[in-house]
Write a protein that binds this DNA or RNA. Structure first.
Lengths: 184, 184
DNA sequence: CATTAGGGATAGGGTTTG
DNA sequence: TCAAACCCTATCCCTAAT
């Protein structure tokens, strides 16, 4: 029914590895268009590259299940630049948790399967921990909070956007006092 | 380098639908900043809203029986041990139509069969909001309240009759005067 | 500079095949 | 049976246009 299976040759696998080294994982179309690899990989699609890389990563990860393959890659921390980020400080150490919608709804489409959700559920605590441990006079800014959390824990690639939105929401709901600049 | 996918929750989808009803499609930033929805959608960007709406619209238009039957078949494969009672409600529950978005209350939970009642219960809030925002000296009359609500939200064809009955009842029970005075 | 529309790429779950 | 290879599509990304 489907297409006949095209088994990956050692040359193709080597080219894929080299492509990931050169362009990074996730840049499948870029790798494919690179003249350095297109001669070997011209039979493959960007989706093929992604799928094959997933399989290779699984094997490299001790023959675990495919779901654990995410752990294989490490991430780099972007250099934080101090500039025009807002200063924030805690306003109450209240015990009530501000939990976002994802964690509230046990029936609605959330299985115990994805890591980002767990990260989001802990964001309030992480932010408090960051501000508390940083102990910067006048509160901590967005950048240093992000840097602290990324240094202490794994963070998803779009973590800065999530954190920014979370801080904005906490400020809007009175969880944080805005010191220097106001959001919105 | 890619992005972990943040799956849309039913609450987020409901808020987006309600936001489109209120502000119109294409007003993504406006929807996002509306306090009525920001509590649910604060993790999303205006582009996220645009993308999700596109996806939802596509599904509402050309979604045949193919996908549904495929998923239905898949359901029967694992664990053929129990009787027939497990087939009841889990699956057919999830297909809500785009057309029904107009009657959704984003702040409410998700009970399936309280549509008309919920609308009427919401009328108090809508009337209050209308009088409050109109700020007409001495309170607002029926016509201007209806105009306001119809301008801000979608209203069913018989809305004027419903509103009229509601206002009459509120006046008879003293709630209307109270509202008018409170928000004068 | 901010926002939106639209095309295109990716991530991750699911399915098929040798 | 099982994993490599392939499919599906919700979500995310990039860019032009305004």
């Amino acid at each position: 029914m489907g297409a006949p299976k095209q088994k990956w040759t050692p040359d193709e696998e080597a080219a894929l590895k080299a492509g990931v080294v050169k362009h990074g994982p996730g840049k499948w179309r870029t790798i494919l268009k690179d003249p350095q690899f297109s001669g070997v990989l011209y039979l493959r699609s960007n989706v093929d590259l992604k799928d094959k890389w997933r399989n290779m990563s699984v094997m490299a990860n001790g023959w675990g299940s495919r779901e654990r393959s995410r752990l294989a890659l490490k991430r780099m921390h972007p250099t934080p630049k101090h500039g025009e980020s807002s200063m924030l400080s805690t306003y109450s150490q209240s015990d009530d948790e501000l939990v976002d919608a994802r964690s509230l709804d046990p029936s609605g489409g959330s299985s115990p399967n994805d890591g980002p959700m767990r990260s989001i559920m802990r964001l309030d605590n992480l932010i408090m921990e960051a501000i508390s441990n940083l102990r910067e006079p006048g509160g901590s800014n967005k950048t240093s909070i992000a840097t602290y959390i990324e240094d202490q824990y794994w963070a998803p690639p779009n973590f800065k956007r999530i954190l920014s939105a979370k801080l904005k929401h906490m400020a809007a709901t009175g969880k944080l006092i805005k010191l220097k600049r106001k959001y919105k």
